[in-house]
Write a protein that binds this DNA or RNA. Structure first.
Lengths: 338, 338
DNA sequence: CTGAAAGCGCTTACAG
DNA sequence: CTGAAAGCGCTTACAG
């Protein structure tokens, strides 16, 4: 195990004090051009780089953001994860990743682990934080931003799409296409995201004077969504359209419906939510509400940095609207058909 | 910003020395039952947890593994990432994530960043490490394990599937099904993974006395694979089977071929490589070589831990075989058809 | 088993 | 601008 190069060694080689070396590598600190040059030269020769951990101890800033994720099988998250990581890296932060093992109860232990690493902030993508945990973070002065998940009255900041409005828009598109027997396979009722989209569905149906064909909690799970779809399509009367709480479930619904011999959108229109890359692929060609990942990521990073730097002390609830992406899995609005 | 609780505060409240507190939280250190009890009580009351960063400074072990990833849009990686993270968490390590921004040249700067955090090891998923970088890590005593990527003569450990054999098996399946005009849309020629699978293809063809219909480098990219497929299928003579270098490209090939009006496997059989979850979905139902992610992850973590703990000083090259998963996108072997 | 002390590699007032 | 010194929160020989 070769020795690590320390600032002291650089100092000796450069013929300056250890403090001087530190100053050269600390932005905002003052050093004469001559010192800077000598130090940089020595550092380059030795291959010196400051120990981030040691720096973190002094400054109290680790420049590490804890990122808690689940549902990586839903294509929305890998993309979000990648963008989040890139955006944070661009700001000089890095992501310490925490995945929730299936075996575990939830985020409890994970967040404690996170705090042990003295993270500067926590981004929780699609996971809930218990109120106890939220208090713990708040008490420790660690900002938390929820990504694609809301938690009313938690005092936590959150960034989501405009889910109520989105649910409404998707449903309205189905209504405008002339559908009347519209079902909703909803996102998990335990999540605000799922509830809000359902709310939008219900509002749109009520405004149109329509009764939902059915509303089922798909739990954001493929198998539950598939089973729900199968059951609906087996009945005497069948829905002529299904709004599904996210794309991940919608793909399973499409597979199921087609396997049963029905045509999409001939027999039933399907609309999803998220607009993950797969939705645009020919095999699905899914009409869906776009969640603007890039803008959601930007907002998340901005909010996080504002909190870390003490610019924002209050929690933010940011909702970002996205458009409906009309594709082949649903009939177009009546006016547009020939 | 509330104060962090330190071991000194716990010591005072428990009426012991700071060293005693440290010992209680250091496994392997000796403390009397009475001390342990007093300290644990005081720690719980204060909400004390050891500062991992401070510990890392002393011990020289950060218990952080740097994970470099690219291609997160290929469904194989999110799954691998999740399993890798879970496995490492189970061993008391955590993952510092590094994504390669599209703008960047490659892993160069990223690995330097990584080392600044004093990571105990680096796992590079599907990215190459320049020989300079490899030396740098080696010089710093940081173990590197390549995941799903091989790099001959780099002195780096790697874990992959048995790509040559896998390419052979996939191709043989096509031959056994009676195909004769077999094309290969290969993985990136700059990667050993891509080259090995191609090698397997060529070996199988040669053994069977067949000439490849075409071999094109798909670069592991959807659009290139799609364009290649389009071109092949537009020609006068068309392939009756295509072995595609990974599933990610195979989906694009299937979309393209179907959009052109051809039937799969009626007009052309398609076989992929990876067996990502999507391959099993009804819309694709893709025959493919399974890469045993779980065993690959296990091997990666084992290798990493062995190197960290100094049990293995030599680099390991581990290849794990997986089965062919026969699905609907390719004709079954001739013998099995009725 | 336990406390006092040194030290991990840095940053940052404090004097000059 | 610069060096000597203190200190971040721990772990770990070293004596007892």
């Amino acid at each position: 195990m070769p020795q690590k190069v320390t600032s002291l060694q650089v100092a000796q080689r450069a013929g300056v004090s250890q403090s001087a070396v530190s100053r050269v590598f600390t932005k905002g600190a003052s050093a004469s051009p001559a010192t800077v040059e000598k130090v940089k030269k020595a550092a380059a020769e030795l291959g010196y780089r400051p120990n981030v951990l040691a720096r973190a101890m002094i400054t109290g800033k680790s420049r590490i953001i804890g990122l808690v994720v689940a549902y990586l099988d839903n294509q929305f998250y890998p993309e979000a994860l990648e963008r989040l990581s890139n955006a944070l890296q661009a700001e000089g932060y890095h992501v310490l990743l925490f995945t929730i093992p299936n075996s575990s109860e939830g985020v409890e232990g994970v967040v404690q682990d996170l705090m042990d690493y003295q993270v500067d902030g926590i981004i929780a993508a699609s996971v809930s934080i218990s109120s106890g945990l939220a208090e713990l973070c708040h008490g420790a002065g660690i900002p938390v931003v929820l990504f694609n998940r809301g938690q009313p009255d938690s005092g936590l900041s959150s960034v989501t799409s405009a889910n109520i409005k989105g649910g409404h828009t998707a449903t309205q598109a189905l209504i405008d296409a002339g559908h009347t027997r519209i079902a909703h396979i909803a996102g998990w009722g335990g999540s605000l995201t799922g509830r809000d989209r359902k709310q939008g569905f219900e509002d749109a149906m009520e405004n149109a004077g329509l009764t939902p064909f059915a509303i089922i909690d798909g739990m954001f799970k493929r198998d539950i969504a598939a089973a729900s779809a199968r059951q609906m399509m087996q009945g005497q009367t069948r829905p002529d359209a299904i709004f599904v709480g996210n794309d991940h479930m919608a793909f399973a619904v499409m597979d199921t419906v087609r396997t049963m011999g029905f045509s999409i959108p001939g027999d039933v229109s399907i609309i999803g939510y998220d607009d993950v890359p797969l939705a645009a692929w020919a095999a699905y060609d899914l009409t869906t509400m776009r969640q603007p990942v890039n803008r959601m990521v930007e907002a998340t990073v901005d909010t996080m940095l504002a909190q870390i730097n003490g610019r924002d002390t209050y929690s933010q609830t940011i909702e970002i609207e996205g458009p409906l992406i009309q594709r082949g899995s649903s009939l177009p609005p009546k006016g547009q058909r020939q």
